[in-house]
Design a binder for these strands. Structure first.
Length: 286
DNA sequence: GTCGATGTTAGCAC
DNA sequence: TGTGCTAACATCGA
């Protein structure tokens, strides 16, 4: 589930457990998630300790006391855990850091799309991976500057970590719903007012998600997230979650935009009128 | 057995 | 160079 709010939650979890604890061992259960080879990792980590944790977009960093950082990317299914005894290691633990106080920090990732690597600094990693400004830090002017010259569909552009970092598939849908903008709008057709609404929606969605530690079912009823199939907050046996929070009789639609499953309200987020579109003025009369 | 999945990146066609 | 689409990664769970 790791988008920005989840990764921020992971970072806080790690911050509570790992700071200033000497690392006594690096346990690699599946080297597939390593981008830095196992021996190098051990050489730089064992005997060191973490001085600070940081986050940029969906990446989490552990800053070490030897001018290096351990960069964690959680892929689609990455998570963190803590345990003390081997049998208690979470299922799908791929790598574990053993700490001097006996705690073990697990990098958990069933699908193994996550990656762990060593870097010189957060800035170096950011440059290497071409990561843009964090979605919580970007200003509306920056957002407008980055998007207004692009001719692409809006949703894929917002998922592009080079434009702004941290937005993932469900968050973009939520942001566009809150901003009342159709995911298939072209970036260069947005008005200044819409860029401001987009920016405000990014702040709202991310702050709300972090506040609830990314637990979807606790999100406000005004959020689109409850329409996603994997949401289980709707009362069993009801179809409540299928409808728009603002239009109780309008069903949320699902389609693929840029190859990604996309949920939106056809009423709140109307498709922009274009020359090719069939004129239809009777729809609003109901 | 089939299908889809929260992310990222390479490859290809235009 | 910019854009869009698809597949691939590895695996789980519905």
């Amino acid at each position: 589930m790791p988008e920005l709010p989840e990764v921020e939650t992971y970072r806080r979890f790690l911050d509570d457990l790992i700071l200033h604890q000497p690392i006594t061992a690096v346990e690699v259960r599946d080297a597939h998630v390593l981008t830095t080879d196992e021996d190098t990792l051990r050489r730089y980590l064992v005997g060191r300790h973490v001085t600070a944790t940081r986050r940029l977009g969906k990446n989490c960093f552990l800053e070490l006391d030897n001018d290096t950082v351990l960069a964690l990317h959680f892929g689609m299914t990455g998570d963190v855990g803590a345990y003390r005894d081997d049998p208690d290691a979470p299922r799908f633990t791929r790598v574990a850091l053993h700490l001097a106080d006996g705690m073990r920090i697990a990098f958990v990732d069933p699908r193994k799309f996550g990656r762990i690597r060593l870097a010189g600094s957060v800035a170096e990693y950011q440059k290497l991976k071409k990561i843009g400004p964090d979605a919580l830090d970007i200003t509306w002017e920056q957002l407008q500057a980055a998007l207004s010259k692009k001719k692409t569909l809006l949703k894929p552009a917002l998922l592009d970590q080079r434009i702004t970092a941290g937005l993932g598939n469900w968050i973009v849908d939520e942001v566009l719903f809150q901003a009342k903008i159709n995911p298939e709008r072209l970036c260069n057709t947005l008005t200044q007012k819409e860029f401001k609404a987009l920016h405000a929606a990014i702040q709202l969605v991310l702050q709300t998600a972090i506040q609830h530690e990314a637990t979807y079912r606790h999100f406000p009823a005004s959020f689109l997230i409850h329409a996603r199939e994997w949401d289980d907050s709707a009362t069993p046996g009801t179809d409540k979650h299928r409808f728009c929070p603002r239009h109780p009789r309008t069903e949320i639609e699902k389609k693929y935009v840029g190859g990604r499953a996309t949920y939106y309200c056809p009423k709140c987020q109307p498709v922009p009128a274009t020359a090719s579109e069939t004129p239809d003025s009777s729809r609003t009369s109901g």
